[in-house]
Design a protein around this nucleic acid. Structure first.
Lengths: 154, 154
DNA sequence: ATAGAAGTTAAAGTCAACTTCAAGTCAACC
DNA sequence: GGTTGACTTGAAGTTGACTTTAACTTCTAT
C-alpha cells in the first residue's frame, strides 16, 4: 500500500547523478529519503523532480547553497505544483542575461585589445587590475570559468 | 649598470596580484626572478608584462596550465614583440564566442522551460542528464560557473 | 541457506588557484 | 649597529562539489 520507492541505485541512474552525489545531496538536505529496517535508503518518486531541479539549477550556475535556499521555499504541506517550480526558475533568466552581457563586453574589449596588442597595465582593460576591483558600471568585466563541467563522471 | 629590478612587493602592487600569487606563479614557472645575495627575489620589468598577460588570460577563463603553455611559445632568444602578444591572445575570441553561444542557447532553453514549467527528466533540456553527457552539436549546453571571481582579495 | 550484487558509514582525497601560517632572514635607513 | 618593514621557506589550509576508500551490512534470487 505504500508509495513505490526507489533505491539509491535506481534514483541515481534515472536522475543521472552518481550514487555518491545522491548521498551527498541527502546529507546536505537537498533531498530526503526514508529508510528500510536495515538502514538502506528508499526515495519517494517526488525526489526525482527535486533532482531534476538541482541539475537544471547547477546548469545555470547556482551553488548548492542557493539551490538549498530555493528548495526551502517550496510548500511543505503539499506537493509542489508546476507553478511552484516555475517560480523557482524565474530568477535564472536575469542571471543568465547578466552573464551573457558580461561576456559580450569582455569580447568587445578583447577585440580592441587584439587590435592594439597592448596588454599594458595602464591602458588595457583586459590586463588592468583596477578595472577588476573597482567600477560597477558596464566596465566591470568578470569572466566565468571553464565551459565544460565534469558532472557525472561518465 | 644592471637593469632596474623590482622587489616582490613592488611587482605585486604594480601588477595587482598578491605577493603570494606572484610567488606561486614563479614556482609554477609562469614568471621568473633573479635573486639577491641574501636570497630575495628581484624581478626584471619584463615580468610585469607577463603578469599583465596572465591577468588578461585569467579574465578570459584560461587555466594556469593553458597560460603556461601559451607563454612557453614565446621566443626565448629575444624580447617578445607586440605581435607575439597579439598572437597569443588571438585564440581567445573564439573561446569567448563559444561560451557566449552556449550561454545564449541555455537561456533560450530556459525560456521554453519556464514557459512549460516542466523540469521533466525526459523532456526538459535543462534537467536532462543525457543532454549533458552526449551530444556535440549546438545542443551541448554547458554552463560556466559563477560570474564573480575573487582574484586579489581586495 | 547462501552467494553476490548493492547498500551502509565516516573519513579522507581531489581539483585549481591560491592564501595563510610559523619561524626565521634580509635590507634600508637613522 | 639597531630597529623595522619587507622578505624567505615549506607545509598546511581554503572553497565547492563531490568522489574514493575501507570495512562492513543488507537485500534478492536461487
Amino acid at each position: 500500500m505504500g508509495e513505490e520507492m526507489l533505491t539509491i541505485g535506481e534514483i541515481a541512474s534515472r536522475s543521472g547523478f552518481a550514487p555518491s552525489a545522491v548521498r551527498f545531496y541527502e546529507r546536505e538536505g537537498l533531498i530526503r529519503a526514508e529508510r528500510t529496517g536495515g538502514g538502506q535508503r528508499r526515495f519517494p518518486r517526488s525526489q526525482l523532480r527535486r533532482l531534476a531541479f538541482i541539475r537544471a539549477a547547477r546548469h545555470v550556475g547556482l551553488t548548492l547553497d542557493e539551490i538549498r535556499s530555493a528548495l526551502a521555499t517550496l510548500p511543505a504541506s503539499r506537493t509542489p505544483t508546476r507553478q511552484d517550480w516555475t517560480r523557482l526558475s524565474r530568477g535564472w533568466r536575469a542571471r543568465l542575461d547578466t552573464e551573457i552581457e558580461a561576456l559580450v563586453a569582455l569580447r568587445n574589449g578583447l577585440d580592441s585589445c587584439i587590435g592594439c596588442g597592448c596588454l599594458s597595465l595602464r591602458t588595457c582593460r583586459l590586463a588592468n587590475p583596477q578595472d577588476s576591483a573597482a567600477r560597477n558600471g558596464p566596465g566591470a568585466v568578470y569572466l566565468p570559468r571553464r565551459l565544460r563541467e565534469p558532472l557525472p563522471k561518465e
